[in-house]
């Protein structure tokens, strides 16, 4: 009975939840925007003053800002490329019937449960360390010069670490999508004369399109804010080689104690994330309907 009264009552009942959620989002956002217009340095408490767009111009003209933008894009793009391609290949492999399938699937999912700081530390100290690391040992074993990962290819190293953590996610979603493919479609294409490769490109890949879209959308949201892996491995360095936007905001506000500029960076990051989101939705959102 959706009368006027009961509808009003319903609104009243859900209003606490709505107000809480709205406040949860709007108050920090409002404070960030407010701080971004102040000269606000933690080393000089009590001297806050209106600064207009000074923080923004300072942040946007900082050479580290452009480096951070590129690093963010490379990081997101690189991880997406590795996880989507790797995820499809792994899903293809795991979709085959073989002995011990259950255990192997469980093991494949495992990296997703390792928290980012731990996985980054393990990679840093056990694999990529140029003296004691496994990769250095392997390089030594075949007589090659060990690679000092975080000095020579810092961003690529971080991409590898993050991709390792997200590969299971992509694999899992793509595997379930692959399993939902109608077996008769594959048989029909087999009878139609399609070999394994054309079956993959003409039948399996189009079927996966939607799942790939979901993987890209979800991962992009999380990858834009990668932070822990950078903090525990390179600290944004060498120089600004691995500083992404998130890390730059952190560096401004908590390493240089400049809350005003940090907030301005935060607002810029929110705007950029929205631009990326709009582009993504435009580009691949059409895959989701139909």
């Amino acid at each position: 009975m959706a009368t006027q009264h009961s509808r009003a009552a319903a609104r009243l009942m859900i209003s606490p939840a709505v107000i809480l959620l709205l406040g949860w989002m709007l108050i920090p956002l409002g404070m960030t925007i407010y701080f971004s217009f102040l000269r606000y340095n933690l080393l000089m408490p009590g001297t806050e003053a209106w600064a207009g767009f000074e923080n923004y111009s300072y942040f946007l003209t900082d050479p580290a800002f452009f480096a951070a933008i590129w690093n963010t894009l490379f990081l997101v793009g690189g991880v997406l490329l590795i996880t989507v391609v790797g995820g499809i290949l792994l899903a293809l492999l795991l979709d085959q019937p073989f002995w011990g399938q259950g255990i192997v699937r469980l093991l494949v999912i495992a990296p997703f449960f390792v928290m980012p700081t731990v996985s980054a530390l393990v990679w840093k100290n056990m694999f990529m360390n140029p003296v004691n690391g496994l990769f250095a040992f392997l390089a030594d074993a075949i007589g090659m010069q060990p690679v000092d990962f975080f000095a020579e290819i810092p961003l690529l190293s971080i991409i590898l670490i993050v991709a390792w953590g997200w590969l299971p996610f992509a694999t899992l979603i793509l595997l379930t999508a692959m399993q939902s493919l109608d077996g008769e479609q594959l048989e029909a294409s087999e009878m139609d004369g399609a070999g394994a490769v054309s079956r993959f490109f003409h039948i399996v890949l189009p079927h996966l399109a939607r799942a790939i879209t979901v993987v890209i959308l979800i991962q992009t949201i999380f990858l834009l804010s990668i932070f822990a892996e950078i903090l525990v491995t390179t600290n944004g360095g060498p120089g600004t080689a691995t500083t992404n936007l998130t890390f730059l905001v952190y560096a401004e506000s908590l390493l240089r104690f400049d809350v005003g500029t940090g907030s301005a960076g935060g607002v810029v990051a929110v705007i950029l994330a929205n631009i990326v989101a709009i582009f993504l939705m435009r580009m691949i959102g059409k895959n989701l309907d139909a």
Binding site: E184, A188, S189, P206, H207
Partner: peptide, 29 residues
């Protein structure tokens, strides 16, 4: 192999390729 036997099959679920137009479906073989 099935493709070389010169037989064509119509499946219970039709097994049409959902991402292709009717023309492309028929053209596939």
């Amino acid at each position: 192999p099935p493709a070389k036997r010169g037989l064509a099959m119509v499946f219970q679920s039709y097994a049409l390729y959902p991402h292709m137009s009717v023309r492309k479906n028929i053209a596939f073989p």
